[in-house]
């Protein structure tokens, strides 16, 4: 294994390049992903390496372009589609939800739609309400789609390569604040399996299930809480659908407490699903405290930086809430 470090964006780019080198059916589509390099410089210089036919700038037409990706996938290509911001997927929901997710099923399993869509998501960039949402749970509600949310450069590469291999549509949510984060990324084209959560830190007193950037805030909180004698287990969910229920159930049986931390709006978010899943499982009898959910505020993401931070879970809030959960003290 290499100890080479890459940024999250570089790791995604390397996965795209390796997938295109390995399989001529793979190509990229999106807005300004060519010479511009992508709004977040994820595709970067790929157009110069692979040409405009394989790194295709589309018009600003999310619905139509998403449909083109669906049709190309149906007809034997392997498109990887970049939404400039995940929020713009609202313009393409028809093709994603009615078509990509359902065509295989509607046609009796006689075709597959090997489509990957990448969604730069999340708040913290001062881009306000229409460029900062975390809509991953919407997609996880749709049978026929798979939804992954890599939290590290390593997983960004490995999960994307798995997504491109996958015969079904996979939605990849990339948190924008993570793009510059560095981490160890092996050079070879390795895969991280879809549908497997990862225990990032083992602990005995409480389980935090977190997604995307919340994994890092949860790990920071765990480090600080360990100084107070609170031993936190942090699970990086990595895949929202299919959900790795077993890893969470086993962890909760061990720690007897569960906190779900995610950036999407709290109500009806992924935390609601995990809480309900635990309540229905054998782990329910092991619980020593109510389940805690820390999610996004019941408001659009605001512009003002103080308000923006207040709209999604931050490390201090996680520390305070988890401390209360474990000690039972207000």
């Amino acid at each position: 294994m290499s100890v080479r470090e890459l940024s999250y964006a570089e790791a995604v780019r390397e996965a795209l390049a390796q997938a295109m080198e390995a399989d001529e059916r793979v190509f990229l589509m999106g807005e300004d992903i060519g010479v511009y390099g992508g709004a977040f410089q994820v595709t970067g210089d790929l157009v110069h390496r692979f040409g405009e036919d394989r790194v295709m700038d589309t018009p600003i037409a999310e619905l139509g372009a998403a449909g083109v990706a669906v049709g190309a996938a149906l007809a034997g290509s392997r498109p990887v589609f970049e939404f400039q911001f995940s929020d713009f997927a609202t313009l393409a929901m028809e093709q994603i939800v009615n078509q990509a997710a359902k065509i295989r099923f509607m046609l009796g399993g006689k075709v597959s739609v090997p489509l990957v869509m990448r969604f730069p998501a999340g708040s913290g960039t001062g881009a306000a309400a229409q460029h900062s949402q975390s809509l991953d749970a919407w997609f996880a509600h749709v049978p026929g789609l798979k939804v992954v949310q890599p939290a590290t450069p390593h997983d960004a590469k490995g999960l994307l390569l798995s997504a491109i291999d996958d015969p079904d549509p996979v939605m990849v949510f990339e948190h924008k604040l993570l793009y510059k984060m560095k981490g160890e990324v092996p050079e070879e084209a390795y895969r991280v399996p879809i549908g497997k959560a990862l225990i990032r830190r083992e602990g005995r007193h409480v389980t935090i299930v977190a997604t995307a950037i919340m994994v890092h805030r949860a790990l920071e909180a765990a480090e600080i809480l360990s100084g107070e004698g609170i031993d936190v287990e942090v699970i990086d969910l990595r895949t929202l659908r299919p959900l790795d229920t077993q890893t969470i159930i086993e962890s909760v049986k061990k720690t007897t407490r569960l906190a779900c931390v995610y950036e999407g709006v709290k109500t009806l978010g992924i935390g609601a699903e995990i809480s309900a899943m635990i309540a229905e499982s054998e782990a329910f009898d092991y619980l020593d405290a109510p389940i805690l959910r820390l999610g996004g505020a019941e408001a659009p993401i605001p512009y003002n930086p103080v308000l923006e931070k207040a709209a999604v879970p931050q490390t201090d809030g996680i520390i305070a809430s988890v401390r209360r959960l474990v000690t039972g003290r207000i």
């Binding site: 139509g64 372009a65 449909g67 083109v68 669906v70 049709g71 190309a72 996938a73 007809a75 290509s77």
Partner: peptide, 8 residues
């Protein structure tokens, strides 16, 4: 758009 994708 699906037809356009198939043509692509």
């Amino acid at each position: 758009p699906i037809a356009v994708g198939a043509a692509l």
